[in-house]
């Protein structure tokens, strides 16, 4: 269409204006060559170096961090161990003290038991004595009473017969 309109108008599609092709191709080649040399000589090696350096720094830092972490873990382990030791020591002291106190207590208990037993035996003895005395007194009183009763009834009290009768009555 463009060809049949006025001549001043350029070709309809500038992309198909072949007269400009050598010019465009020439400048494209110049541009690409310039960019290629800028990139391959300066830019790319520099960026690669920076990236590699950063990678190196990062991995170094990571190694250092790893080391620090190991150290921290070691410290933690030492702390745990100290804690466990202290706990065991405390346990031991507690057990010892408890044993000591128990021994004291046992001794005191034994002593007290012995004393109580002694006192109980003594008391038993006294009770037995008192009972004995009481028995004797009862016999005497019974004998005297029997003798008095017999004489009051008008009989001559025979001491031996009264004794025998009282004893038999007391037994019976």
């Amino acid at each position: 269409m463009a060809t049949d309109t006025n001549a001043a108008e350029p070709v309809g599609m500038p992309q198909l204006d072949f007269s400009t092709f050598p010019n465009q191709i020439f400048w494209l080649v110049v541009t690409l060559v310039v960019i290629y040399f800028v990139l391959s000589r300066i830019a790319l090696p520099r960026i690669a170096a920076v990236l590699a350096e950063r990678q190196g720094t990062i991995s170094n830092d990571i190694t250092a961090a790893e080391e620090l972490k190991l150290k921290a873990q070691e410290a933690e382990r030492a702390y745990e161990k100290a804690l466990a030791d202290a706990r065991a020591e405390a346990q031991r002291i507690v057990a010892e003290t408890r044993a000591e106190i128990k021994a004291d207590l046992d001794a005191a208990t034994a002593r007290a038991d012995a004393e109580i037993a002694a006192r109980a035996a003594e008391a038993e003895k006294q009770i037995a004595e008192i009972r004995e005395n009481a028995m004797e007194s009862v016999t005497l009183v019974a004998r005297a009473t029997a003798a008095e009763l017999v004489s009051a009834l008008g009989f001559q009290a025979d001491g031996a017969a009264v004794d025998t009768a009282v004893a038999s009555k007391l037994k019976g």
Partner: peptide, 8 residues
């Protein structure tokens, strides 16, 4: 389309 519009 462009070729038909401008270049034919």
């Amino acid at each position: 389309a462009l070729l038909l519009m401008f270049a034919v």
